[in-house]
Design a protein around this nucleic acid. Structure first.
Lengths: 130, 130
DNA sequence: CTAGGAGCTGGAGTCGGCTCTAGGTCAACC
DNA sequence: GGTTGACCTAGAGCCGACTCCAGCTCCTAG
């Protein structure tokens, strides 16, 4: 607990989140942190648990295909604080729609793929039985 | 009907498939056609209905995230003809697994996104009622 | 006191999948 | 006979999202 309270190094955050240290610096440069990352001795980044929690949200949004500019915009809105919930909602709704569509498209593609797998399985079964 | 029997130009195929003429030439160069695309007067590409049918399969595989090298490999297998169904099956099964995983991951992400949308909706509802 | 390891910066490089450009051929219309 | 417009080739360029590199600073351990 004391270890976390003291803040995390970039390496520790990389380990915890699965992001590379490169990606963490890149995200920071891209404005993907709600509050500026603190700096410790010799200018080293010191991450708080909040930073890590936020990164975990970001990772999920990225994993679902949200582009960095949208993620940056969302971060800005959160940074600005209460009062812009309409825009946050709009942004999330749009992303929700995109993800839903994408799942639909993948499910449709999966039908063809499943069908093809079946075709080859049948074909090989028949040959096996001859 | 006669119009189709005569073969299609690259522009017509682009229109029918939604791929760009650039993409069609690129796919050809990448070996994504089972049989070489025929050429007509002045070296112009002439596509058969089979070509278009194959492209439609390719489009679905690409839409589900199959990388071009895998698609090329699959094309090669089909080009070689009967006898390599095990490898085709393996390839399709692998892709099936990837797509299933991807749908799973997206569905999980969608949970968070749906939750966030709910949070903002509630927040705005409350404000509206005050 | 030096060697290693983690971190820093700015900027270049990579990769996948197209997309576009330059410069040309050809057929058809006015 | 001049202008479209669709097509051709080879190759350059682009975009997103990292990833890596050079050259530096620190701290710690042997």
């Amino acid at each position: 607990m004391a270890e976390v309270a003291a803040g995390l190094s970039i390496g520790q955050v990389a380990e915890r989140t699965g992001l590379s240290v490169h990606a963490l610096r890149f995200y920071e440069q891209q404005g993907i942190f709600v509050s500026p990352v603190r700096r410790g001795a010799a200018g080293r980044r010191v991450y708080s648990q909040d930073d890590v929690d936020w990164l975990e949200v970001c990772i999920i949004l990225r994993a679902s295909g949200m582009p960095l500019p949208a993620l940056r915009r969302y971060t800005e809105l959160v940074r600005e604080g209460a009062g812009n919930e309409e825009e946050r909602l709009a942004l999330m709704r749009e992303h929700h729609g995109r993800v839903t569509d994408q799942i639909g498209r993948l499910a449709q593609s999966l039908d063809l793929i499943t069908f093809k797998v079946g075709v080859y399985e049948d074909l090989l079964d028949q040959n096996g039985q001859v």
